[in-house]
């Protein structure tokens, strides 16, 4: 095997991702609780959510029974054997399913048969990026079905909303996606958005935005401003946790951009539920965990 302890490290990565929410998410959930009126339905809902996060960690059990799709993002040094890495990761996913960190969650689309292992065509998903550093960085996101179902892709211009091919148009369609997601996808959620790209890369990049920490600041000032504005306006809509009504409809908005063709202008939105499961590790030359990323 390429790195001696890779299997154990990846298994622990899956366990942690499924059972423990990252600090940046927990912090915003706690701030959201404080923003709701004490004793209100929204406040009680956030209290249940916080209790659930706590319980899952204590019991080392899935935060939500839908443990989602396993999306691996691997930044690797030149020369890492990606085929061997993927083999080890697949074995870790299978083992994690046996141990109950993951639900049996991968179904053959034609026969309806559950593979029982979370392995199959397209499962898990790997994104390998080579970088000019000796470090091996592995990030994992578990994305549930309910929130994945409320993702949207818009093609601008969109007449019904008078949304043109500019940031003002982007703002309108992003808010539209929040309106449509209400009551579904277990809000309050986080939006990952991509402006541009083609249909496939646009959605892909929108998911990558969800790897950013909630409290970071977009390096592009225009996008930073748009993120802030959409977050504020979405919360004004009063949809609240679970769509019960309340002050907090979204926990965060992260927007990126890709070049597009002159003829296309896509805005793609990935919605992540409050059970925002992502974690990451830096691994040393033996595959040992050096540090956790979130």
């Amino acid at each position: 095997m390429l790195l001696r302890n890779l299997d154990a490290s990846l298994l622990e990565l899956v366990r942690r991702t499924s059972a423990e929410l990252p600090e940046d998410i927990k912090r915003v959930i706690n701030q959201s609780l404080q923003r709701e009126k004490k004793g209100s339905v929204a406040w009680n809902t956030f209290s249940i959510i916080e209790k659930n996060i706590q319980l899952a960690k204590e019991r080392s059990l899935p935060i939500c029974q839908d443990t989602g799709s396993c999306l691996f993002y691997v930044d690797c040094p030149v020369g890492l054997d990606q085929i061997a890495f993927a083999e080890v990761a697949r074995a870790a996913v299978k083992e994690a399913t046996l141990k109950g960190y993951l639900r049996q969650n991968s179904v053959d689309s034609l026969t309806g048969k559950n593979s029982g292992t979370n392995l199959g065509p397209g499962a898990p998903v790997f994104h390998f990026h080579q970088h000019a550093s000796p470090e091996l960085r592995v990030r994992l996101m578990l994305k549930g079905g309910g929130c994945e179902n409320v993702g949207q892709q818009y093609s601008l211009p969109m007449e019904s909303l008078k949304a043109n091919r500019d940031l003002a148009g982007c703002r309108k369609v992003i808010l539209d996606s929040v309106l449509k997601a209400q009551g579904k996808g277990c809000g309050p959620g986080v939006l990952g958005v991509c402006i541009g790209g083609d249909r496939a890369t646009s959605y892909e990049h929108s998911k990558e935005q969800l790897l950013r920490k909630l409290d970071d600041t977009n390096s592009n000032p225009d996008l930073a401003q748009l993120e802030e504005r959409v977050l504020k306006e979405a919360n004004q809509m009063g949809i609240g946790p679970m769509g019960y009504g309340g002050e907090v409809t979204l926990l965060g908005v992260k927007i990126g951009a890709l070049n597009r063709l002159p003829a296309s202008y896509f805005v793609s939105i990935s919605y992540m539920c409050w059970a925002f499961r992502r974690q990451g590790v830096n691994l040393d030359g033996n595959g040992e965990v050096q540090n956790w990323l979130y």
Binding site: T45, I48, I49, K51, N52, L55, A56, R59, L61, P62, I63, C64, Q65, D66, G144, G146, C186, P241, M242, Y244, C273, W274, A275
Partner: peptide, 13 residues
């Protein structure tokens, strides 16, 4: 009756 989505652990207790 609406239960809190995602709260699998709390509800199971």
């Amino acid at each position: 009756l609406h239960a809190v989505g995602g709260a699998a652990q709390v509800l199971s207790t």
